[in-house]
Every structure is written in structure tokens, then in C-alpha cells.
Design a protein around this nucleic acid. Structure first.
Lengths: 139, 139
DNA sequence: TATTGTTATACTCTATAACTATA
DNA sequence: TATAGTTATAGAGTATAACAATA
């Protein structure tokens, strides 16, 4: 595809741009960066090792060390050696961390606002289109 | 909306996450950060003042000064005082800058890949849904 | 010897506050 | 006095390379 830029391309760009900006603002209302909020979000499903976080966040392990260190200093996460393999650190979210995470969730109202503009049928349509775009070419 | 997270919410998140990551990678192939690539993209439509760039990029003017300084040092943009109002600086993209910008465009193949999985009719559907989500509530 | 995580370092992004030049 | 942009500074995100601890 060598075409410079179709209107639909631009629509996608604008959508992502707005979504990102809204998430940044939401995180800031809780005094968090977007990266910190993402990390907390990951931990709401359960504990992770540092390496698992690095994989999930698509970044280097040394970066996770710093992110976790800052969150730990604020009491939002804990970091404890794994009993089975003491090289591994288990990172968990604290009650205070869950509180901040909830604040971000509440402040991040853009997706809800957007989806409220669609009927139930349109939401199903959108879901189908997103799934199809996401599918591997050979599906 | 106090519901924790619907599947469609998650689909939107994943879509944006993948789009962002792909853009970062595309910019990196040209040795640029995402912010630098965005700035170059803005300039392809014509020159901008520093203030216009700050507005477009949703960031502080002092940030634009640094972004432009780095791009200028690499010969990708020029910065010249406006003839009419010498407080204003006009920033322009150079041929070398256009070359790097094209490289990013080519490397950023995710949108094209995704849209190729949709029929023309589905693309129209998607365009309509995006427009509707974007519209102000009173439209 | 291989793996997990940390430390040291460096660069970029970003904002705030103080400043310069121009209007 | 008000505006456009810069400079100084500081904190955060990010990666690479070297390292320590554990397996």
C-alpha cells in the first residue's frame, strides 16, 4: 500500500490520537504517568514477575525496575522475592494502588462516551470490524 | 459509566495499543522518536510557527523548541524568523526531512494491513462508526 | 553456564519558571 | 504591557551494557 493517506487512515489516526490524549489526562488526575497507570492495570488481574511486566508493557526489564521502584516508593505496589525461585520478584498491587487505579478508570471516560453514541447493533458491528482487522491475514 | 470493562472496551484498548507500538517501531526504523515523526508529519502540509506546532502536538512551547532543535541539528527542518513579525519562527521541512518522513510512512504499514482485511463496504461502515463516535453528543 | 533482576549511564520527552526579543 | 520563543532546570520514560544473585 503506497497510497499516501486515505480519509479512513486519517480517521484511525485521529481516533488513536484522541484516545491516547484522554488516557494521559486520566492518569494525570491520579498523579500517575500513562506508563505507571498501565503497569497498575496489569497488576489488577494478579501478581506478575518483573519479566512478565516487561513483556506485557513492551519495554526493557531495566525500565520496569524503575517504574516499579517509583510506584513502590509511593506504596502503590509491593515487590517480594518468589519463594520457589528467589531470582524472581513478584510484584503486587496494594489497596492504595487499587484506589489510584480506580481513579484512573473513572477519569478515563472517553471510551464510554464514544460507545454511548452507538446503538447496540452498531457496537456489535464495531466489535466485528475490530476483530476482523486484528485477525491474522490467513484466518 | 461505572462498569469495569466490557469486551468492546478491551478491543478498543488493544487496537490503540497495537497502533501506537507499530508507529513507534516505524519511527525508529528512520531513527526518529514518535514525537519527532509527528512533528515532521505536521510540516508536510506546509510551514508552521513554533506556537502552531505546540498546539497541534498538544504540548508546551518549550518542548517544541527542543524537538525542533534536534531535528534542525540533523538537517531535517529549518527555522527562520518570519518577515512580518520577527518574534515568530517559521519551521519548514527540508528534502532530507521529507525523505525520513516517507521512510516512516512506508514502515508504518499496520493501518494498510488492517484495512486490507476489510471489504470496501466494511471500510465504509467503519468510517461511519468512527465519525459517529467522534461526533459531539448533540449532533 | 544461563536466567532474573538491578545499577550505571545516557538520551529523549515533557513541563514550569525565568528570561529575551519584538510588537 | 503583551506575545513568541528560548533557556535553565528537573523529573519521568526508555534503552544498552555491565553487574550480582540465583538456578
Amino acid at each position: 500500500m503506497t497510497e499516501p493517506s486515505t480519509p479512513l487512515d486519517q480517521q484511525l489516526w485521529d481516533f488513536v490520537y484522541g484516545y491516547d490524549a484522554a488516557y494521559d489526562r486520566a492518569a494525570q488526575t491520579a498523579g500517575l504517568s500513562a506508563a505507571q497507570a498501565c503497569l497498575l492495570d496489569r497488576l489488577t488481574a494478579g501478581t506478575s514477575s518483573m519479566g512478565e511486566l516487561a513483556t506485557a508493557l513492551l519495554c526493557d526489564a531495566s525500565n520496569v525496575t524503575q517504574l516499579v521502584a517509583r510506584l513502590e516508593a509511593r506504596g502503590l505496589v509491593t515487590r517480594e522475592p518468589d519463594a520457589a525461585d528467589r531470582r524472581v520478584k513478584r510484584v503486587s498491587i496494594t489497596p492504595a494502588g487499587r484506589h489510584e487505579h480506580r481513579a484512573v478508570r473513572q477519569a478515563f471516560d472517553l471510551p464510554a462516551e464514544m460507545l454511548d453514541r452507538l446503538s447496540a447493533e452498531e457496537q456489535q458491528q464495531l466489535s466485528r470490524l475490530l476483530a476482523k482487522m486484528r485477525a491474522p491475514s490467513t484466518s
